[in-house]
Design a protein around this nucleic acid. Structure first.
Length: 498
RNA sequence: UCCCGAGUAGCUCAACCGGCAGAGCGGGUGGCUGUUAACCACUAGGUUGGGGGUUCAAGUCCCUCCUCGGGAGCCA
């Protein structure tokens, strides 16, 4: 820790102290000497560069220690990549005894040389010349070298990212987020930060969390005993957003191509491996787009994100392929390489009826497709991603464009194996009279949508968009089967730990 | 929210028809000349998810609550 004390006591004596006009030493510049890097190099870069090489410094956390009388092998991982680096610690080193007792999980700083490994498990290893235990780890450290259940790891969510699987998952999550921004930014899309607190009670996508500063023991009430939201923080009833789409549409009608990418909240009591109360959603919205344009963009989008992750998280994908979903890499490569199928809802219903499968929910035109039907279409019939389009209008949202047949809307759901619906979108109803008709028909209040309807009054145009649940995408990219295991600290009904 | 299933040592799991609560891993101690989920020996570790009931006797049977998993619904 010599460097740290050096900084704390004012720097190296070999460097003249700058003087300010007050006679006090001026603050040192951040790039001046004496602020040498504590951490050293990242393991990802060390492995990429290879060896042999001398004088390498690295810092990370101990994954395992195997020691004998003469030598100890310390596996160190710094989170930069899947691989840990094997550090060979000779018993002659002064800190040998401290290192082998530091414990799994301890933070260490290693100085040494990159040398070809004598053992079979790895190409390179570090022959340590010094090992410093920065922070030892209590013997109660809950992560063992052997495999843990995901259920158990969820109870130690503050440590589980130090495990192999969760290291891979969260690196993939990061890469996917970057790939999404890159995809849209390269195409000139504007990233819009739609509000998280919303005063619209008409977003129409499920139960909402209320936002209030009321004293819940004694909230203000009106004369007839109802809650008086005019006295609440915003002067009206507010909630956490369930979708940024309606606001997104207003931006699309100014900038052409926009997308949202942010948190979304649903207060539904959903207890499944695919639902969370807090998740992230991506919602692109494009002006002068029809359903065909929308399908093409969604296809390019999913392929682009997948191929970015394959390229930048190769080691992670290989690990997940081996331990989480056999054949993951091949599946993702196939998604990138193959065209996506398109079926109209009507065709899908015909295929389901003709399949001869015994479904729990019988299929007939007009019903919403159940999970079992979607799985048959994507897993058995197409064996890959498939768009289902042109759904009956009665089972879809008010804002979707009514087709010329008068009974279907220009909706699209992208179904993928294992996950089911991963993308849902539509061309929007841009004709004011038709949209108003739909709102009234569904018993919605026209005045709640006054600003949304204005977009159809002032320069309306055909436009389209879709929504993607980010965590669903991460599940699809990692092979993980529970959404709670692709979110750092998942929020689901009954659970908000950490 | 509904239907199934599960909850036993820090973790993963055994324990027959109701009859003395166990193993592997992990931890501790010691050993081992290059290990790869290292190995060998010894050792500590339990209110069997909570509460109630039946019984001479309950991890085991009954009721109830909680948590987790699978399926469904809602949905992304």
């Amino acid at each position: 820790m010599s460097r740290a004390t050096g900084v704390g006591t004012g720097g190296s004596p070999s460097r003249p102290e700058p003087q300010s006009m007050t006679g006090m030493p001026a603050p040192r510049r951040a790039d001046q000497q004496g602020l040498e890097m504590l951490r050293g190099e990242r393991i990802k870069e060390i492995l990429k560069q290879g060896g042999p090489r001398e004088g390498v410094v690295l810092s990370g956390w101990v994954r395992s220690v195997r020691d004998s009388k003469q030598v100890a092998f310390v596996m160190v991982n710094d989170g930069s990549c899947m691989d840990s680096l094997q550090v060979v610690v000779d018993a002659a080193l002064p800190t040998f005894g401290e290192v082998i007792k530091a414990g799994t999980g301890a933070a260490v700083r290693v100085t040494g040389n990159v040398v070809p490994s004598q053992g079979g498990g790895q190409q390179w290893e570090i022959k340590a010349t010094a090992v410093e235990v920065i922070g030892s780890s209590d013997p109660s450290y809950p992560l063992q070298k052997k495999r843990h259940s995901f259920e158990y790891l969820r109870t130690i969510a503050h440590l589980r990212m130090r495990s192999n699987v969760f290291g891979a998952v969260f690196r993939v999550r990061n890469a996917a987020a970057y790939a999404i921004h890159r995809f849209f930014q390269e195409r000139g899309f504007l990233w819009v930060h739609t509000p998280i607190i919303t005063g619209s009670d008409c977003e129409g996508a499920g139960e909402m969390f209320q936002v209030t500063t009321f004293d819940l023991e004694k909230p203000p009430r009106t004369e007839d005993g109802k809650l008086d939201f005019s006295k609440d923080f915003f002067g009206k009833q507010t909630s956490l957003t369930v979708s940024g789409q309606l606001e997104g549409e207003t931006f699309a009608l100014a900038f052409g191509d926009i997308y949202t990418f942010g948190p979304t909240f649903r207060a539904e009591n959903s207890n499944t491996p695919r639902h969370a109360s807090e998740f992230w959603m991506i919602e692109p919205e494009m002006a002068f787009y029809d359903l065909g344009d929308n399908i093409r963009l969604a296809t390019d989008f999913l392929k682009s994100m997948t191929s970015h992750v394959l390229e930048h998280c190769s080691g992670d994908i290989d690990f997940l392929d081996q331990w989480v979903e056999k054949g993951l890499r091949a599946r993702l490569e196939q998604v990138v390489a193959s065209p996506f199928a398109v079926l109209t809802y009507t065709e899908a219903v015909e295929r389901l009826i003709a399949s001869g499968e015994k479904f729990e929910y019988p299929v007939k035109w007009g019903i919403d497709l159940q999970t079992e039907h979607e799985r048959y279409l994507t897993e058995t019939l197409v064996k890959g991603p498939v768009f289902v389009i042109d759904y009956p209008k009665d089972i879809k949202a008010f804002y979707m464009k009514v087709n010329d047949d008068g009974r279907t809307v220009a909706a699209m759901d992208l179904l993928v194996p294992r996950i089911g619906e991963i993308i849902g979108g539509s061309q929007r109803e841009h004709r004011l009279d038709v949209l108003l008709g739909r709102i009234r028909q569904l018993g919605l209040q026209e005045q709640d949508y006054w600003w949304y309807l204005d977009t159809r009054r002032y320069g309306t145009c055909p436009h389209a968009g879709f929504g993607l649940g980010f965590e669903r995408a991460v599940m699809y990219l990692t092979g993980m089967t529970n959404i709670r295991d692709v979110i750092p600290y998942p929020r689901v009904p009954g659970t908000a730990e950490f």
